[in-house]
Design a protein around this nucleic acid. Sequence first.
RNA 1: GGGCCGGUAGCUCAGUCGGUAGAGCACGGCACUUUUAAUGCUGGGGUCGCGGGUUCAAAUCCCGCCCGGCUCACCA
Length: 495
Amino acid sequence: MAVPCPDSGDGEQRLVKLQRLAAAGFPPFGQAFPNTRLLADLRKDFKESLAVRTAGRLMTIRDMGKSIFADLRDGSDRFQLYAGKSHTAEFDTFKHLLDAGDLIGVEGELFTTRMGEPTIRILKWTLLAKALRPLPEKWHGLKDVEIRYRQRYLDLIANPNVRRLFDQRAQAVREIREFLWAKGFREVETPMMQPQPGGAAARPFKTHYTALNTDMFLRIAPELYLKRLLVGGFDKLFELNRNFRNEGLSKTHNPEFTMLEIYQAWSDRQGMQALVQELITTVAQKVVGSLQVGRDENRIDLAPPWREVTYRDLILEKAGADWYDLAPAAARAHAISLGLAIDPAWSMTQVTHEIYEKLIERTLKNPTFVTRLPRELVPLAKVCADDDHVVDVFELVIDGKEIAPGYSELNDPREQRKRLETQSGAEAQKVDEEFLLALEHGMPPAGGMGIGIDRLVMILTGAEAIRDVILFPQLRPKSDQSSGTSNQSSVISDQ
RNA sequence: GGGCCGGUAGCUCAGUCGGUAGAGCACGGCACUUUUAAUGCUGGGGUCGCGGGUUCAAAUCCCGCCCGGCUCACCA
């Protein structure tokens, strides 16, 4: 059966093919095609002449006249197909009306080609969905980062390494849950819409709840609710879900990001350090298969024990042994001489922290627990027993990124009120009275910590930007004037 | 928000000094029954991000805008 197509644009040609396929008895958007096997399993269990049934997306088609080779792809693998005039049903329809990108179901038998390639000899096939648009370029893949993010499905089809990365992310999340479950932690869910944002210092997203006629905020952290659950008797709990912060975008910041927060009653900062070290090394072993992670040019060694160093020692090492003895004016001058831009209004704590953030943190490549931070920086942590100017916390830094903060949690409601009121005075943030009320009922001494899951996945996979580990990173919505996908008007709009 | 760089066919990219818009992949036609970036011949496909300006003439020069990337600022 000859089925020539008109010589016009690709989109139009595919529409014509769609109509001809329908006329030939192939509904272009087919029904379920059950009892298929994954292509990866066919490869694993390959047996000559084995009857198989499978489905996937046609990726490339090599038409040799009476013999056609094609590559089929599913979520697990790719596999070669072979259609021949003498044995494949509806061969001419297959030859002329299918395109790269179409989704098909296949019944046939396995064999090995002369070149040694495991292949399915197609006996019967059916159309499961006609692709009305072409695939991205098969050799160079899809490079346009804007299309990769806005139309991530094309990125996933065209770039198998991207699919692998998101498989690794999914596996990491699963391993984290299994690890914590095995240790007796319970997963909980607390409000993402909060009447008052707390647990961190960040600008929140604001919305309005009509039924209660009240403003609500997307949470910037779940911490204050999880601590209410500590009061309520959840001794070991965690929440793994999204936080939202109304701040700028960068290689390490997305306005919605995934945070794991873990609390353990009767524990403390040191207990959490041991827990996070075991958790991350376990996940790395399961997901990456090694404690040497990242790309070749940026290897990170996760082998324990991880370095532990006080904030003060890092500052003294960088700013000089006399740093904390300097008069404010001399200290500012010295900070400026180190290349920093110092605001004259800053306190000494802020100047010192600028040195930490700009000159020290980004140099800490292998995992490092930075401990004993200034108390002003962490209002929800207990002060150290031997020095109430610093708090009993760690900041886990890997590859120069803040990955996980952990504390001995402050459970004294009187002290907590003072610390929050000091902070709220400076930042016009209201004190969360419901949280303080809970503390007054008695919160057990506890260790707590948070892990930025997106950044952890960056470490494990060697991704350079947080956008590359988030399936749909935040972008400005398309406008009519912009480029990229907006010029792709629908191929069916004028039908 | 500031600075720098970019946007040309569905995709990957060329486009010289301002002088008729190009290639590969993809798509149509022809040939080929073991190819795998198949091959050979051949054909169609463009709002050069959007708008304005300069010019006999603009993808190209100028201005404004949109979108993206890098970076700075912001960011417990």
